[in-house]
Design a protein around this nucleic acid. Sequence first.
DNA 1: ACATCCCCTTAGCC
DNA 2: AGGCTAAGGGGAT
Length: 295
Amino acid sequence: MEMRLDQSKTPFSLDFTLQCGQAFRWKKIGKWWYGVVRQNVVKARQNGDVLEFQTYPEELNSDFIESYFRLSDDLPKIYSSILKDEHIQAAVERFKGLRLLRQEPWECLISYICATNKNIPAIKDMILNMSKRFGKRLLFDELEFYTFPKPRDLAHASIEGLRACKLGFRAERVLEVSRKVSTGEANLEDLRKLNYEEAKNELIKLHGVGPKVADCVLLFSLEKLEALPIDVWMKRIFMENYSDHFNPSFVEKVLSKKSITHGEYNRIGLFGRTYFGKFVGYAQEYLYHFKRCTF
DNA sequence: ACATCCCCTTAGCC
DNA sequence: AGGCTAAGGGGAT
């Protein structure tokens, strides 16, 4: 199928959106991006205003694309809301059209529990390993894909099986959370009904979920655009580019150590939300990607 | 080759 | 509350 986007009203860049590190399941082969979303392989490419896509085995229509790529987000409005200074302005200019994705909460949760203390290539590797071992194989364009395992699939996995996926100490966390989600003790969809603070408090109760992982899940899969995940990169960005907004001893303390306390995390998050407003999650993704690309 | 540090951090202990 | 440490293993330098 084919969609037309008016770039002035609906700026969109497939490349920036899939390259910025928010999702771990996409790869580009030639001009086509291939990914697995829920139970389907998705193939897409963009040429200016034209977005072509195909899904397999189900033939999903443009509603799916609009939802997954958040094409209904009014990006020009979001830009005017977050463009507060030259740092964010440079990032937005460089990556115009980058959009947050609307990911599937379960996969997003497990992915970010696994992301703890790992770099992006290693995270992709773990997720692919779990999908190969516990998901369903799909053949498309003579390529092999694997759906992400369902809660009950991982709930029935063994620690050894998960460790074989190179999860390390994350294996116990993934198993425990999988059991809670598969029995219904934890219900991710219900979190949509809660506000940001409430939903975050619920997520943090899960083993392996701290403030950063909770913010990632809230931002990337549960519609909370005020979520501001602060990882080592965002910490540096705030302490370097926005140091004037914190007191010098705080900046010095935070920069001097590799991890930050919950209190420090919340303080930076509060500043971010106050300064950038309700779309701070978008600001975060632009600043993060810009910093990583120019580092 | 090899050492060292860094990872989109959290849990558990003090 | 906040400081400290352990917890895989791959990638970068």
